[in-house]
């Protein structure tokens, strides 16, 4: 069982506009309470593996879902995905790719690397909000089970 203070969602997003819109969507769905934001791939990895600035974190404090943009500075989204899914400690954390890219190869590569969901961010904000809501809920609920069962 995760503690109440544990981060429930890790949002990896470099664009401040998209970040704000995403947070707004999450807020609307009442999912914004325990969100941690990483602004690039490297930070996301440090967070997950408790390195660098996040060395104080415990690795067991894993978020319930990671919302990952693909186009990121430093380490890009697919690389982040590869590292997370290639590591036993982080492999089980659901990753939802949240991206502007409709490119087939991004989609294929993501699934190949073990992504749990893939959402193309719609330009239309209502649709976007809807998508975030549905997916966030789904994975949060799915992960609300006792940690021992995982």
């Amino acid at each position: 069982m995760s503690s109440n203070h544990a981060v429930e969602i890790l949002l990896v997003e470099d664009s401040p506009q998209d970040l704000e819109l995403t947070l707004r969507a999450l807020r609307k769905a009442n999912l914004a309470n325990r969100i941690h934001v990483a602004r690039d791939g490297a930070e996301a990895l440090e967070f997950m593996f408790c390195e660098g600035a996040y060395a104080a974190r415990t690795i067991e404090d894993t978020p319930k879902v990671i919302l990952l943009d693909l186009k990121l500075p430093k380490v890009d989204g697919l690389e982040v995905l590869r590292r997370l899914k290639g590591e036993p400690r982080t492999k089980a954390t659901p990753v939802v790719v949240l991206t502007s890219s409709k490119e087939q190869r991004d989609l294929v590569e993501s699934y190949h690397l073990g992504v749990n969901s893939y959402i193309v961010k719609p330009v239309n904000f209502e649709q976007f909000t809807q998508a975030v809501l549905e997916l966030g809920m789904y994975w949060l609920l799915l992960n609300q089970r006792p940690g021992g069962e995982r």
Partner: peptide, 18 residues
């Protein structure tokens, strides 16, 4: 193009809506 052109559009739309 697929990535970067759409993001600002989403910004326009999103903040207009907000």
């Amino acid at each position: 193009v697929s990535h970067d052109l759409r993001a600002p559009l989403r910004t326009m739309d999103g903040f207009s809506q907000a």
